[in-house]
Design a protein around this nucleic acid. Structure first.
Lengths: 223, 223
DNA sequence: GATAGTTTCATACAACTGTTTGAATTGCAA
DNA sequence: TTGCAATTCAAACAGTTGTATGAAACTATC
């Protein structure tokens, strides 16, 4: 059954090429050349180019989501069913940040592929991302338990901002490195996780915007 | 001189189509059909498809950058040459957020085009974005003046996180609305600006990560 | 109203895309 | 070995893409 061999050769070659050169200018012919298989093999084994991309992305997404949930579960068990907000946020952004910025994984094809997927947005991947909401709801629920008094909208904003900082750091790491002329250390992944978690937790635990004292911030008119 | 007419008909049609359907599946033939001009007109007036896209994006970027700098300059003049960190951050994220989320501009083609440009990343636009660094440096300089004692890396992280939250909110506004089941009001643009500026300013003025006590935090020190 | 310079137009081009086809080859069971 | 299914292969297909061409139509100047 050499079929599995062909299948995974295609997957590996595709992931490598997409990671290196982006979805935009990698054709099926590039992939089969890299994998040393026949052009028709892609459609035979995957049905279409889009399904190949989808399989690639689903595989990696599942890995990340599982890591996140494992971290969350571990924290909850440690805390007798309730994790702290720091732990929850850390479980949310840690796996992605470590996966995409981690030094040992610097050359990792999988990580570079996921960065690509977050920069270039191509239809089959977009469709899958839309299903990510159910996954995020689990974190929203955990946050609700960790900060019971908190307004729900505030929780979602905090979760959203945590993801914002994590994803944008991955997307724009080169730009930030250049802008800061190396002063921001993008290799200190643990530090970045602390930073993102710290800011998001701060946003979640500070007084709500409405009540916060301006510190010369322009007062918002009560709608 | 009907040439200008053709030129701007193409620009308008292209911006509209790209805004609606993305760069991926809008062809020159779609554009010229929408603009009611001949196919060859695009290459005649712009040289190539990529140059058309570039011109579109440059025009809008310049607008945004000018708005930002105007706001920054106004705040600096008001403060006798020095703006507060809140004002600087507000000048940075305000124009983009208002432009892309603003209710009156909800149907604005320009805004929707810029959202597309931030979601889908296509080569001619990527090339231009790389030159945005010089523009950001002006804000970094202003921040340095507003928070003179602060470590430089911290300033860049704060600036980076402010942009992270703003851009990600624009990119993922639908997802956030769905995730929060409408509890996060994406139409309250002023509120969102306050929120983003508030969180970023908090991150910038709180104690540095190394010294900070984990968990809940942390009053902002009046400096 | 002839001339020169722009702009428009229909059409063709050349290249590349993902996909399909049908025959060859292979692997394996009876 | 024979038979059957799974897999590979070269080749072609059908469609689309951005771009180029050269003639036609227009515009304005003298």
């Amino acid at each position: 059954m050499a079929s599995d061999q062909t299948r995974s050769a295609i997957l590996a070659a595709a992931e490598r090429l997409y990671a290196d050169r982006g979805f935009g200018d990698v054709t099926l012919r590039d992939i089969v050349a890299e994998a040393n298989v026949n052009l028709a093999a892609v459609n035979y084994h995957f049905g279409s180019k889009d399904e190949l991309i989808a399989e690639l992305f689903v595989t990696r997404s599942i890995q990340t989501n599982r890591e996140r949930l494992n971290e969350l579960k571990a924290a909850e068990e440690k805390g007798g069913g309730r994790a702290t907000i720091d732990e929850i946020l850390r479980a949310l952004v840690g796996p992605t940040l470590r996966g995409c910025l981690g030094p040992d994984r610097e050359g990792s094809t999988a990580a570079r592929f996921m960065i690509r997927a977050s920069i270039e947005s191509v239809p089959p991947i977009r469709r899958i991302k839309n299903r990510e909401i159910d996954h995020l709801r689990k974190f929203a629920a955990a946050m609700r338990r960790a900060l019971p008094g908190r307004d729900e909208a505030e929780l979602y904003w905090g979760l959203h901002f945590a993801l914002s900082m994590a994803h944008h750091t991955i997307r724009e790491k080169e730009r930030l490195a250049k802008l800061s002329e190396g002063k921001c250390d993008l290799n200190d992944v643990a530090g970045i996780v602390d930073r993102v978690v710290g800011v998001a937790a701060m946003a979640l635990t500070a007084e709500p915007v409405e009540k916060r004292q301006p510190a010369r911030l322009v007062a918002r008119d009560a709608r």
